[in-house]
């Protein structure tokens, strides 16, 4: 079924959704960035929207309200993640659900911080809410949980931030210090100019909160998570770990006892010691041992594939 997509957010993920939608059989009828918007009920030309975004930094002359008022089937919420009240993302979702439209989120804020509010809005709407892209980028974590049945999964844990994992694995492999590797990661575009969201563990924590909400049917927000970053890990700690066949990874856990993110010792060649920007999620099942899902956890096209898989799941 070809669906009409309204894409909010024109960063790496939003742009990739615009670019790849037609390959998945869908059409983009509206796009908004933080200040401008463009709407065409017959379908926008992806190339010209992306071209204008690149040349002028805007997507059109319309307003985001025009997008929300337009005739679309699915709202793709890919604006930057915000904490606390998760605005403006949450209001965008509310507007869509109140109009009985479907919502697909790449934005972690509303799902992590206001999961119960989100589910309440969904219950009163003919539309549905999906957010595969919010956890583990291209890795189908949430659809696997949904297929398997959240009641039969005891816990989820893993490496959910590629930036932190890149830094730790480079430090261990090259014997370099934190500051040195962080600077290198920034040069490579793996880390942002302000890397705090990633290295302090916030991003991984949001993903674990979402996992906890999915596994435990709500009730969690970032305030419930115990979070520690990797800024305090010196090279000497990684050396000592390596001498003993171990290494350090920023591990996030969503278990019945809560959400926890922090640097942890893991076996050097163990399942969870993925290297570089790779992510992995391990689902501890009730009757079937562990399921390990690994892949690219970030990036525009990668995350867009998760968004478009969600869209294609809509009946």
């Amino acid at each position: 079924m070809s669906l009409r997509l309204a894409v909010l957010g024109a960063g790496a993920v939003g742009q990739s959704v615009v670019e790849l939608a037609s390959e998945y059989g869908h059409v983009v009828t509206a796009v908004a960035d933080s200040t401008t918007a463009t709407v065409d009920a017959d379908g926008l030309d992806p190339a010209s929207v992306l071209d204008r975004k690149e040349r002028e930094g805007t997507v059109g002359d319309a307003d985001i309200e025009d997008v929300l008022a337009s005739d679309y089937d699915v709202l793709v919420e890919a604006t930057p993640t915000t904490l606390g009240d998760a605005e403006p993302g949450f209001s965008h979702v509310r507007s869509a659900l109140e109009a009985d439209r479907h919502v697909v989120l790449a934005n972690k804020g509303p799902v992590a911080e206001r999961y119960d509010d989100l589910r309440a809005l969904e219950a009163d709407s003919a539309g549905t809410v999906q957010f595969e892209a919010a956890v583990g980028g291209a890795i189908p974590v949430l659809s696997t949980i949904s297929d398997f049945g959240p009641d039969h999964i005891n816990a989820a844990r893993g490496v959910l931030n590629g930036t932190a994992n890149f830094i730790l694995s480079r430090m261990a492999a090259e014997g370099l210090g934190y500051e040195h590797v962080l600077a290198e990661a920034q040069d490579l575009g793996v880390a942002e100019a302000d890397p705090s969201f990633d290295v302090e563990g916030t991003d991984a924590a949001l993903k674990c909160v979402i996992l906890a909400n999915v596994l435990g049917d709500g009730g969690y927000s970032l305030d419930d998570a115990e979070v520690e970053g990797i800024q305090n890990i010196p090279g000497s700690a990684l050396d000592l770990a390596a001498e003993d066949g171990r290494t350090v990874r920023l591990i996030g856990e969503a278990t019945p006892s809560g959400v926890r993110v922090g640097p942890r010792l893991v076996p050097q060649n163990g399942t969870l010691a993925v290297s570089g920007t790779r992510n992995i999620v391990q689902l501890e099942t009730e009757y079937a041992g562990n399921l390990n899902l690994s892949g690219r956890g970030a990036g525009g096209p990668e995350t867009a594939t998760a968004v478009l898989s969600d869209v294609s799941r809509i009946e």
């Binding site: 816990a155 844990r157 520690e228 700690a237 922090g262 640097p263 942890r264 010792l265 391990q282 562990n290």
Partner: peptide, 12 residues
Amino acid sequence: IHVVEPLTEVSA
């Protein structure tokens, strides 16, 4: 002092 704890996984 920061403690880096071992991750106790349930083996598959």
